[in-house]
Design a binder for these strands. Sequence first.
DNA 1: GTCTATAGGCCGATAGAC
DNA 2: GTCTATCGGCCTATAGAC
Lengths: 207, 207
Amino acid sequence: MKSQQPGRTEAAERIIDAAKRMFAETGYDAVSIRDIAAAAGVSKANVFHHFASKEELYQEALHRSCAKAKAVLCEMAQTNHEPGEQLRSFFYSDLSRSLADPDGSRLLLAEGFDCSEEQAKYLVSQVFGHDFERLTEIIANDQTKGNWRSEIDPAAIATLMIAANTFFIAYRQILRQLPGVDFADDPERYADSIVELLLNGIRKEEQ
Amino acid sequence: MKSQQPGRTEAAERIIDAAKRMFAETGYDAVSIRDIAAAAGVSKANVFHHFASKEELYQEALHRSCAKAKAVLCEMAQTNHEPGEQLRSFFYSDLSRSLADPDGSRLLLAEGFDCSEEQAKYLVSQVFGHDFERLTEIIANDQTKGNWRSEIDPAAIATLMIAANTFFIAYRQILRQLPGVDFADDPERYADSIVELLLNGIRKEEQ
DNA sequence: GTCTATAGGCCGATAGAC
DNA sequence: GTCTATCGGCCTATAGAC
């Protein structure tokens, strides 16, 4: 962690860190190179010495956010608990990963919001697709083992879990204001509630 | 519909329409008054004659989006179907409402993304809170009637449904790229899949 | 590699004629 | 109510000294 890219000065790293944070906080257009330079403790011209354009600096910040998300996913332990627990564990890990790098997550979610088809392909290949495929694998696997209903669409539950994760990160403030919600500041309880609901559904067992 | 506010010229209405569309498409900072004026077929100075500032014009566009969403909600028919069907109907209506005004929805969702506490309070009181409360009412009502499990948290399922709706609108392009997803361009099928899953859950019935 | 200084352009907003 | 013309400022990006 905090490893410096070869051929990048320490000042360049400070610039990237500041850019990632500030782009995430206020968006591409609202932050100027002047602001980033000041936050990194260098001159404006020095930013352009290291990065050809504002856009190139933004792409570097975005790329780092993707790489960080992917690295955490790869480190995640392979657990062999019972099916429901495995799903809960995966969802909570996914949520924790997003919470561990809030700036990176916000950058990625802002980038994915209403984006172009090309950008969606890139983001799915770099970030979202990985979680989605692992989720569908877990579900399909447990379906064949006979633990879970085989008629449900694995893609539907994976979508719901990605949506629940996304909503928690992107619309946390909204969540805090909704009446009756007591898990807005408690990710573990949120994961418990969501997964419990998905596993057992709303309906009573047939009598 | 398309009713002109008293004291607003027809040119002012064209300006608001263009502003709403362009702010939704590219964001506040990325669109200039010059662009809006050109799209509305008036001069830049004329925009400032009708609106004191760019911010005031944006607020008007946002306000209209809120009002439109609320109007559609009020019109929604009160159905008296069986519990599951009622939930499905509500979710699909909610989704349809968002899809019927894509620019307004995008504006609202962009505004809610990672917003301030005050803004969240405003958006919940104006838009999201209404859906959320109706959903929790429906659920709590059916719980007391004995149809549904009483131990689940109504807020959790309402959150999941708002999240599913939000994700469909804000991250549609991502959804289209996820493997195995066949409902990205079929809102009704999406609603069916999500609600069916929520109602019955993943697990097999106890044997 | 880092700086100061500045070019060149687009922005929001205003002045004032019609 | 609508326009043309313009102001003052901030922006990205570059030139050139050290």
